[in-house]
Simulated assay, not measured.
Amino acid sequence: MNLSIVIPLLNEEESLSELHQWIVTVMTANNYSYEIIFIDDGSTDSSWQKITHLSKTNKNVKAIRFLHNYGKSQALHAGFAKAQGEVIITMDADLQDSPEEIPALYDMVMHKEFDLVSGWKKKRYDSVLTKNMPSKLFNWAARKTSGVKLHDFNCGLKAYKNTVVKNIEVSGEMHRYIPVLAKNAGFSNIGEKVVVHQARKYGTTKFGMERFINGFLDLITIWFISRFGKRPMHLFGALGVLMFVIGLLSAVYIGITKLYKLYNNEPAILVTSNPWFYIALTTMIIGTQLFLAGFLGEIILRTKNNEERYKVSETL
């Protein structure tokens, strides 16, 4: 099979039939063998009924329905697990991503040997203040932090080799950082393509300003995971030992100073009356706690079990 098109959605009943027909037209024109995988992330409208009807009229339509809204990352994780195509395309269901871009993305992965190709919505039709400017700031921070030189991490239109999606773990709210996850997994040949961004035709966006706040928090998380996720002791242990040694040396200095003054019959205050004694003690305690945090992190990494992150109610 050439293509698996993975489409996470939430309450997009108006656009599904049009999107499906558009994709089918492109697939037929290019003679692709394909599957369309809709992941209904807990829609409360008639999205699932629409998908069920489409699956009856087109055997290439497959679908997963979550019991309730778990988030885009979980939807993509489920779609990636089900996908069987040589190339996996992800796109949003709101008609802002154009299926006409799929052949070029497919060609870049199959013939130019990119592991992953990310879309770049160079010209956007979103609000400048609420989306464009925060998005530019977010993408700049993501580039600087991750080392992945993409202009648009948030673009839902991406193409992947099958081996990429089968070897990355998309969890939490990490769908924005799939290129970073791919890079950390060893897939470094990451490309970018300018794609057409269309104004939303139906409904309203499901994302607000909080996605940028969450995005920056997730950026810190993935920075930590990419550098210390497999070796937390290297960070916490090193900081803990450093703080403990500083505290210990300070305490030793205070003790030697006290003994020196006593030996020379000089007036000396009680050690416990010296504020530096408590600073040294606190530093040693914090250092010990950091070291233990790194130690516990190493134990958790070696004993963790895969947890269930979402529940599926139906599949097609």
Results as ranks from 00 to 15, higher is better:
G79C: 08
T28Y: 05
S43Q: 06
V26K: 11
K56R: 11
I39D: 04
T28C: 04
K50T: 13
S33H: 03
V312F: 13
K166N: 10
L116K: 05
L239P: 06
F236R: 01
I190A: 09
K136M: 06
V194G: 00
K258P: 00
R309C: 04
L129S: 15
K201N: 02
G287C: 03
G172D: 03
V87Y: 13
Q84W: 07
W120A: 11
H68M: 02
G79E: 05
G255N: 07
L129T: 13
Q289S: 00
E169Q: 11
A83Y: 03
K72Q: 08
A142C: 06
I285W: 10
R200N: 00
R227L: 06
V109M: 04
E101A: 10
T28W: 03
M174E: 13
G71R: 01
I256L: 03
L270I: 05
I213P: 00
L76P: 00
I168A: 10
Y32F: 14
T52S: 00
L129R: 15
N306L: 13
K136F: 05
N167G: 09
L249P: 01
K72R: 10
K230N: 08
L150Q: 08
Q21T: 13
A268K: 05
I5N: 03
M209N: 03
F187L: 08
L316E: 10
T272D: 02
F216T: 07
L67A: 06
G79Q: 06
H68Q: 03
P134R: 09
I299E: 04
Q96S: 02
S250E: 13
A93R: 12
L10P: 00
I89T: 06
S313E: 15
F153S: 10
L129V: 14
D94A: 02
I269L: 12
S146R: 02
N214Y: 04
T28R: 09
I168P: 08
I286W: 02
F277W: 07
N60S: 08
F291A: 05
T145V: 14
T315Y: 09
A199I: 01
Y34H: 01
F114C: 07
I220C: 11
T257Q: 09
M209Y: 06
V117E: 05
D152I: 04
N60A: 09
A29H: 01
I190V: 03
S33N: 10
V109R: 14
H234A: 14
